Simulated assay, not measured.
Amino acid sequence: MEAIQAGVGTTFGAELFLVTLHDNVLISSNVCFLTHDRSVHTLKCGGYDEGKVIQKYGKIEIDDN
């Protein structure tokens, strides 16, 4: 297994466990893996489902190339 190489300005979020890259994967420049967003927060702020913790996220898996 080779180590990951990251260019200038590359950042990784806290939820790396949500992204799995298998063998021979090549990721182009300007790619964004979105594992979660703030749309549920917008619904909650609008009074929807008041008082409950709502989370929406998903795992991204890119299989062998």
Score class of each variant (00 low, 15 high):
Leu18Asn: 07
Ile60Met: 12
Leu43Met: 02
Gly58His: 15
Asp64His: 02
Phe12Leu: 15
Ile54Leu: 12
Leu18Pro: 01
Lys56Met: 14
Ala6Asp: 07
Asn24Glu: 13
Thr42Leu: 12
Gly46Glu: 06
Ile4His: 09
Asp63Trp: 05
Val19Arg: 08
Gly46Val: 03
Phe17Ile: 01
Ile54Val: 02
Thr20Gln: 03
Val53Ser: 15
Gly9Met: 09
His41Arg: 11
Val25Cys: 09
Asp49Leu: 14
Glu61Phe: 05
Gly51Trp: 05
Glu15Lys: 06
Thr11Phe: 06
Ser39Leu: 02
Asn30Met: 08
Asn30Gln: 11
Ser39His: 09
Asp49Val: 00
Val25Arg: 08
Glu15Thr: 00
Asn30Ala: 03
Asp49Asn: 14
Gly13Trp: 07
Ser29Pro: 08
Asn30Cys: 11
Leu43Trp: 11
Ser39Lys: 04
Ile60Val: 03
Thr42Tyr: 07
Val19Leu: 00
Ile62Leu: 10
Val40Phe: 06
Asp49Pro: 08
Gly51Glu: 10
Ile60Gly: 00
His36Gln: 05
Thr42Pro: 04
Thr20Gly: 11
Gly9Phe: 05
Asp37Trp: 04
Val19Trp: 08
Glu61Arg: 05
His41Phe: 13
Asn30Val: 01
Ala3Asn: 15
Ile4Ala: 15
Leu18Tyr: 12
Asp49Glu: 12
Phe12Thr: 14
Ile62Gly: 08
Thr10Ala: 15
Val31Lys: 00
Val19Gly: 09
Val25His: 02
Asp23Ala: 11
Asp64Phe: 07
Val40Ser: 10
Ser28Arg: 03
Asn30Asp: 06
Gln5Asp: 15
Asn24His: 06
Glu50Met: 12
Phe17Met: 05
Gly47Pro: 05
Tyr57Gly: 13
Tyr48Gly: 06
Asn24Val: 07
Glu15Arg: 09
Val8Ile: 02
Ile27Arg: 06
Gly9Ser: 15
Val19Lys: 02
Glu15Pro: 00
Lys52His: 07
Gly46Tyr: 02
Cys32Ala: 05
Gly51Gln: 01
Thr20Ala: 08
Thr10Pro: 08
Lys59Ile: 02
Val8Asn: 06
Gly46Ile: 00
His22Tyr: 08
His41Gln: 08
Lys56Leu: 14
Cys45Val: 13
Cys45Leu: 15
Tyr48Thr: 08
Leu34Ile: 00
Leu43Pro: 01
Asn65His: 15
Tyr57Asn: 01
Leu21Tyr: 07
Thr42Ile: 04
Val31Thr: 03
Gly51Phe: 02
Lys44Ser: 03
